[in-house]
Design a binder for these strands. Structure first.
Length: 877
RNA sequence: GGGCACAUAGCUCAGCGGAAGAGCACUCGGCUUACACCCGAGCGGUCGCAGGUUCGAUCCCUGCUGUGCCCA
């Protein structure tokens, strides 16, 4: 057998240096085609579509989490022999991108109107060409195993065709319609927004009570938006409200305008709020619009698209926020302000893109009639065709789909998919399908100027990226997608819409088998990361300093289903340390000739230590598999961390040192076991930390790449409970000896002569050299003089360790330790006695529980006896 | 206003009916030839408060307090 010292040393440097190696490894994987999907062949499909990041953006920590989890799932399935497709791409982000380019041309003193629509859109494409690529670069640094050959963009020709196809189908079936409605309008972005693009916050405002009419023909209304009174067309009260019953059907004069407006009754007025009478402004409030519809009231728009008052009179030309105090002042002058409350905190909607206060606005827009689509989306989850993880979030999904409002899909933008509807002479309307010719412009036909909500095209993502509306081989193979991974915060934005459109476009087949919703990233104190707070961590910074693997492992370790995760730099450092630990442990194994070239010898020829670690390794494989099926990333990461560090490194490698020192067949067998366990753990870790495992695994095995290595399976060999008991006993014995040494102030490296008895009776004979090595003990020499002794109760018996500390023993320290142990044992005994002395317990508790407590009691009694004897011996001695 | 979570060691979180756990932080001792991004040992919790169910409750139920989120 080759001597360890003459083994060829590995070429691995003493520490893992991610920065220099990761990029090269990644490009090698791409070049090898590992990530490219093949729609042919017999492998079962596995498909994840990447939630398309915004083309204007860069990847933040939330993306890093999302990508880590998707990559882990994809890499594992690939190793398991699935045909894996992780579909990348970006969306065109209508409002955001248009804003960016408008800002850019504003620096040249231009507006989009100066350029004209066509030139502006060209300008956006040019911008996309120049800056839109940074996300791909970031994904390469993360190590994302996406199929770059299928990279897609929502504005691509094929995806645009998908948009036009589904629009036409929905239009023809009456599921898309155009109507004048109150919509959410952003006076800064100058476009309609859907309900979910509005964020509500509790803001300080004012509540002003205004008297309309005079004398006994007057009524007081309260409002937070005094300026809208210029557009009031009624006052509404509850039909059962006796206070106002006599006024219903009469009219009052609307101050400042001289208009007479009716007092109407409406069920939806809350008599408890304010005076119980509300002003009704159908053109500027969604609830008032509803009241207006029921009472057939006119709607008077008093603002332009920028929120500037257009009503004639002294307020014309004022911004809505300037008009508010001006209107109040004018009313006060007339003595019509009955009460004012400032600040008055109430909920105010803001544009999710630019934070401008949203103005409800009456306008002509396109809508999707969602009722039948939402019903199907709900049913797919109710039927279990799509499973939501964690299941608690399914309720939130149902609450949404079962109470969904029609979806406003038109946007007054230029960047996006233009609505494929043409308006002709005599009010004719024509929706044009993807393969149809638009009607001739010279006959007076013009296309609708608006574009579609970005989410409209994103909703097609799970199948438009696969080639739909063509029935491509990829669509056939990879639809439905296996799992969708995203944050719970975009359940409504995106997941619901993909469900609706997927079921509709694909003849009732749901887009996903499973949906996994992860939590949000927060800072170390649990606050949301935001630029305003200045607590944003850029994942690229972490990757620069700690490597992509460490960044990924940190995120995976924090990913408990459905709950948010707090991140701090310390976590990343810890993950970096773990990678380094793995690196050095593997290096150590390699330096000692660990190899996968030879199979692990038959179990009966191995040591108990070998059988113990092999058993733990099998258990680890099963546990990791089970946890992956449940999307328990935090737990599976922790299981891998614990196995690697606390069992493999802290114990098995130390035990292996003893076996390697023996030389001969024992050393050779140990090399095979080392090779096996590192092979397995590296493969298990690869989906989480792909780079370091690739470097180590290829060195260890000589294999081509761990990316395409088979996923580990348990050995099928039975575990050896006796060997495991014995190793656990050795762990306890060694720990107790170390504890004693530490109490006595013996330096960790100093060897101490010791005489052990009871080892054989405890069944630990074979592990005796291991104990000596791990506890730094020397065999007793001729001059051995025990100056201290400890007794350690282990599973098979009690081991007595006599130590020659060749000097004074710190009796005080020992007494303290014994007293502490005694107190613990006495507490334990008292607890057991209390239970066993209670007939209700012994009668009603299950027998195994009673037996367990009885056994614990016996151990406590023995401990007390032993420790007391030791203590009294000390005071007598 | 409606709904849903969560309150466990200094921090971030597991555990969710039968002996309180992890990582980080902290204390002490160590360069024990894989690793100081390390090794060894240790300190630290009436599991938010008050009731209830149970032989037994951090775990189940009720109420309260606090925090967060979603929806109006």
């Amino acid at each position: 057998m080759t001597d360890t010292a003459s083994q060829p040393t590995t070429d691995l440097p003493p520490a893992w240096e991610p920065a220099t190696v990761e990029a090269e490894l990644y490009e090698r994987w791409v070049a090898a085609g590992y990530f490219t999907s093949d729609a042919g062949g017999d492998r079962p499909p596995f498909c994840i579509v990447l939630p398309p990041p915004n083309v204007t953006g860069s990847l933040h920590m939330g993306h890093a989490l999302d990508h880590t989890l998707m990559d882990a799932l994809t890499r594992r399935r690939r190793m398991q022999g699935y045909e894996a497709l992780w579909q990348p791409g970006m969306d065109h982000a209508g409002i955001a991108t248009q804003n960016v380019v408008e800002r850019e041309i504003a620096r040249e003193g231009l507006t989009r109107h100066d350029l004209g629509r066509e030139a502006f859109v060209e300008r956006v494409w040019a911008w996309k060409g120049e800056y839109g690529g940074q996300i791909q670069g970031q994904m390469r640094r993360f190590g994302d195993s996406v199929d770059w050959s299928r990279d897609r963009f929502t504005m691509d020709e094929g995806l645009s065709k998908a948009v036009q196809t589904i629009f036409k189908r929905l239009f023809d079936e009456g599921l898309i319609y155009r109507a004048e409605r109150i919509i959410n309008w952003c006076p800064r972005c100058l476009t309609a927004l859907s309900d979910i693009e509005v964020e509500h916050s509790e803001d300080e405002g004012e509540l002003v009570s205004i008297r309309y009419g005079d004398g006994d023909r007057s009524i007081v209304v309260a409002t937070t938006r005094a300026e809208t009174m210029l557009g009031d067309t009624a006052v509404a009260v509850h039909p059962d409200d006796q206070r106002y019953a006599h006024l219903v059907g009469t009219e009052v004069e609307l101050p400042l305008t001289g208009r007479m407006i009716p007092i109407v009754a409406d069920e939806h007025v809350d008599p408890e709020f304010g005076t119980g009478a509300v002003k009704v402004t159908p053109a500027h409030d969604p609830n008032d619009f509803e009241i207006g519809q029921r009472a057939e009231l006119p709607a008077i728009t008093i603002m332009d698209e920028r929120g500037v008052i257009t009503a004639h009179g002294p307020f014309e030309g004022l911004d809505r926020f300037e008009a508010r105090p001006a209107v109040v002042a004018a009313l006060r002058e007339q003595g019509r302000i009955v009460a004012e409350k400032r600040p008055y905190v109430h909920s105010v909607g803001h544009c999710s893109r630019c934070d401008t206060v949203v103005e409800p606005r009456l306008s002509l827009q396109w809508f999707v009639r969602v009722a039948p689509l939402a019903k199907a989306a709900g049913d797919a989850v109710r039927d279990g065709r799509t499973r939501i993880h964690p299941p608690e979030l399914a309720k939130r999904y149902f609450d949404w789909v079962d109470n969904m409002h029609d979806w406003c899909i038109s946007r007054q933008l230029w960047w996006g998919h233009r609505i494929p509807v043409w308006y002709g002479p005599n009010g004719k309307v024509m929706c044009v399908g993807p393969d149809e010719q638009p009607p001739p412009a010279d006959e007076g036909w013009t296309q609708d100027p608006d574009v579609l909500d970005t989410w409209f095209s994103s909703a097609l993502w799970p199948f438009s990226t696969l080639g739909w509306p063509e029935r491509t081989p990829h669509l056939e193979k990879f639809y439905p997608n296996s799992v969708l991974v995203t944050g719970y915060d975009i359940l409504f934005f995106w997941v619901v819409r993909m469900m609706m459109f997927g079921l509709y476009a694909m003849d009732g087949v749901q887009p996903f088998h499973e949906v996994y919703l992860h939590g949000l990233i927060r800072d170390e104190t649990g606050k949301k990361m935001s630029k305003a707070r200045g607590n944003v961590i850029n994942p690229l910074d972490w990757m620069d300093r700690y490597g992509a693997d460490a960044t990924r492992f940190t995120l995976a370790r924090g990913a408990n289903p459905g709950s948010d995760m707090a991140l701090a730099e310390d976590w990343a450092a810890g993950s970096r340390n773990f990678g380094n630990k793995l690196w050095n442990a593997t290096r150590f194994a390699l330096m000692n000739g660990a190899s996968t070239a030879r199979a692990v010898p038959a179990r009966e020829t191995l040591t108990e230590a070998d059988r113990w670690i092999l058993g733990l390794t099998d258990a680890l494989v099963s546990e990791v598999d089970r946890l992956y099926e449940e999307y328990q990333f935090a737990k599976l990461s922790d299981a891998l961390y614990h196995y690697t560090w606390d069992e493999l490194c802290d114990w098995y490698l130390e035990l292996a040192k003893v076996q390697l020192a023996e030389g001969g067949d024992r050393a050779e067998a140990t090399r095979a076991v080392l090779g096996h366990v590192f092979d397995v753990v590296l493969r298990l870790l690869h989906p989480l930390i792909p780079f370091v495992t690739e470097r180590l695994w290829t060195t260890l095995t000589g294999g081509e790449s761990v990316v395409v290595a088979p996923w580990p399976a348990a050995s099928g060999q039975p575990r050896d409970p006796e060997a495991e008991r014995h190793v656990v006993a050795v762990q306890k014995l060694v720990t107790e000896i170390r504890r004693f040494r530490s109490d006595q102030g013996v330096k960790p490296g100093q060897r101490v002569s010791a005489r052990l008895s009871g080892v054989d009776d405890a069944g630990l004979s074979a592990l005796r050299p291991a104990v000596a090595s791990l506890a730094r003990l020397n065999d007793p020499g001729d001059d051995f003089a025990a100056s201290a002794s400890i007794e350690v109760a282990v599973a098979g018996g009690t081991v007595t360790v006599e130590l020659d500390l060749s000097g004074t023993v710190d009796l005080d320290a020992e007494r303290k330790r014994l007293a502490k142990d005694l107190a613990a044992a006495e507490k334990e005994l008292a607890g057991c006695d209390a239970k066993l002395g209670n007939p209700n317990f012994t009668d009603k508790a299950p027998a195994p529980v009673v037996a367990k407590i009885t056994a614990r009691r016996e151990i406590a009694v023995a401990d007390i006896e032993r420790i007391s004897a030791r203590l009294s011996a000390m005071s007598n001695g």
